[in-house]
Design a protein around this nucleic acid. Structure first.
Lengths: 247, 247
DNA sequence: ATTAAACATATTGTATACAATTTGTCAATC
DNA sequence: GATTGACAAATTGTATACAATATGTTTAAT
């Protein structure tokens, strides 16, 4: 679900924004070190002006921060900040679920949500050896985007989008952990049961339950984060969401 | 509580940001109309470069929006967006209160919070005719800022700051309504009882209660918003928070 | 009279030049 | 040898020039 219009003005600005964000997320630049504007503009083939616009925007996303002496640096996040960001996402998705339940959603959109849930079921019902990871990840992202939409509130939708722009707060942050951790598929099964329960609660107009479920669903991500950080610290370099986390 | 360092880079940028924000909030420019960069830069005595930085920042605050054909315009908000923003603030302050209760706060900070509550008591105990409105407003802002601090989470603190930058979502959005609406002091009394209850719940480590109270506290603002919009639409021009709201 | 097209004007988006700070280096002094 | 000072290089923050695009007006055609 790419968004071309509105989100970014023109060609060069967009190029700078996407390029810089990708560079930061892929760990292409050292956290803490000052980002040289001239070096970056040459690397991304844009002028300093659109580059600075991109830097300012990434500052709002908390991916880079202002340095007291001037300029920007890639942020390094603490474990606690990651935990709080996940809790924040859960809170916002909880509000989205409650709004959807309380205010109601048209049948067509509910049906669309169910179809995503059923598609997720299929990926998990298949032979574990032939589990289609990338399809699960895409469907999971679709589910969370749909949940934000079901809220019917642009305010909530926008805030969720902002918070999930942080890699470790994204709903798909740890879905690919299963590639490295045997038995992680179980976690996905639990997550899927929560997906189902959330949509079910929305359908039955059970606002409080929908909210509590969405919150708990996010805490599954926290659980995985804690596990990886404590038990498998070597994975930090292989799970993209964790490259920005300090030891 | 002005924040000079870190928040904005240099002199001209800061001047442009503060000047433009004030201009928009005071209704100095017509919502919907395109903001002319040259006109604004002359009006604020800054160059186009820092002005555009300010525009981009206000876009993140949702105060202005990109126009498809290019440039920015002052946003006009719907009643529903205001309602959702208030609910969002309540949700975030709820998380802050719960974090404070669950994770605990050092006695000194709790004591400081209580002293604000007691100071608020004093303003309300005084003779209604000599009610010191501006002092109440300042203390109320202090309370909400302290609540965000008590969370102990920079993530939450930052998000609250962002959301409350919208005038109608600010904790003090409607405190001056009492000047125009007789009997509104009663609402402030109710609000104050909630202030007390929130800090009390935090002190007793009652996380769920603290969260519920903070949410309900924000809904008092929604109540006032609805009242003003439905019963006293003429106040729209006199309550600063409402100048950006569409009829 | 109304619509459409072509042109002129104005405004944004981008690139770059300039000035003020900051950062790094080297030498002199304690 | 370490530390402080001055100086040089580099980098940011700001201003402005330029190009591409949008807007408004006039003119021509139906």
């Amino acid at each position: 679900m790419a968004r071309k219009p509105q989100d970014a003005p023109m060609q060069q600005s967009l190029k700078a924004l996407l390029g810089l964000r990708a560079l930061v997320l892929q760990g292409g630049v050292e956290p803490g070190k000052r980002l040289s504007e001239i070096a970056l503009s040459e690397r991304l083939n844009v002028s300093r002006t659109p580059l600075r616009a991109a830097l300012q925007r990434l500052e709002q996303e908390h991916l880079v921060e202002l340095i007291p002496s001037g300029g920007y640096a890639v942020r390094r996040f603490t474990h606690q900040e990651a935990v709080d960001s996940i809790e924040l996402r859960g809170t916002l998705e909880g509000v989205a679920a409650r709004f959807a339940a309380e205010r109601g959603v048209v049948p067509a959109r509910l049906k669309a949500a169910w179809s995503i849930v059923h598609a997720l079921d299929e990926t998990l019902d298949s032979n574990p050896d032939s589990f289609d990871f990338s399809r699960y990840e895409q469907l999971n992202e679709d589910f969370h985007e749909t949940l934000a939409d079901l809220s019917g509130s642009d305010v909530i939708r926008r805030e969720i989008a902002r918070v999930t722009s942080l890699p470790f707060a994204s709903p798909s942050a740890f879905t690919n952990t299963h590639v490295n951790v045997p038995g992680f598929l179980k976690t996905l099964t639990i997550a899927q049961s929560q997906h189902r329960a959330i949509i079910s609660a929305i359908e039955m107009r059970e606002g409080a339950r929908a909210e509590a479920l969405a919150r708990e669903h996010a805490r599954l991500a926290r659980q995985t984060l804690d596990f990886v950080m404590e038990e498998k610290p070597d994975l930090r370099t292989r799970v993209p969401a964790l490259t920005l986390l300090a030891v």
